[in-house]
Design a binder for these strands. Structure first.
Lengths: 114, 114
DNA sequence: TCACTATATTAATATATTACAAGATGTGAA
DNA sequence: TTCACATCTTGTAATATATTAATATAGTGA
């Protein structure tokens, strides 16, 4: 985690349903803008803006093929994030085991550590 | 990934430097609000707001200890996200190997697959 | 060159987030 | 009770983000 700022910035870029969907599709396909327009059901300029954000942050890149711009994933973190988001979790983390006696900045103890 | 909406919502909650820092600290310690106030160097009401967002989304929870509220991590996804964000990546993903001939929705080919 | 298509950019507006200040609530101690 | 402390909630102004429409650019083929 470089800086908190930059990390948050990266997450913010991914934290949009349209951009998430774009990234998800790009995991398996190369797509041009009009593909995505159809896919997402939003206007062309909106797609283009989202792509511009994704490009600016280095998550995707594109090459030109005639009139089309073919977008593909560039940042390896995207793959890992998408995998993680698909993962299933059964239980919440174990709650701290005891009611602590010294309230400030105590070291965390979980059920497992007793 | 349940729905894109909810997933984006989760990411948005994490995508703030102050909240990231809180979550990071909670990985190893239980903290009360005034601890975090000091830690983050922002006002108490602001900390409280961030905690309220984290609580509402189920990422953290707290128990009451006298006058203090002791916060701890609840959602296991947080741990995985933090681990991932700390991971180092050397190279970008391989660019698509060839300039495709059929532009629309082609299956992605990478250098590795040639 | 001209018209057409694909995409990018800009501008205008609506909406959401953020930080800060002030007041409300709840708990423990005198 | 009353006070002091820890935290939460609400109001608000500043800023950021999203959406949509309009316009600009760039490649292609007639």
């Amino acid at each position: 985690m470089d800086g908190l700022r930059e990390t948050a910035e990266l997450l913010k870029v991914v934290a949009h349903p349209a951009r998430l969907e774009i990234l998800q599709k790009l995991e398996t396909e190369i797509l041009c803008v009009s593909d995505m327009e159809e896919l997402l059901g939003v206007g062309q300029s909106n797609v283009s803006q989202h792509l511009s954000i994704l490009r600016r942050s280095g998550l995707v890149d594109c090459y030109v093929e005639g009139k089309l711009r073919c977008y593909f994933l560039k940042d390896p973190r995207v793959i890992d994030i998408l995998v993680l988001l698909k993962k299933k979790y059964d239980d919440p983390l174990p709650a701290p085991a005891c009611c602590p006696t010294r309230p400030h900045a105590q070291t965390k103890k979980t059920a497992a550590s007793l």
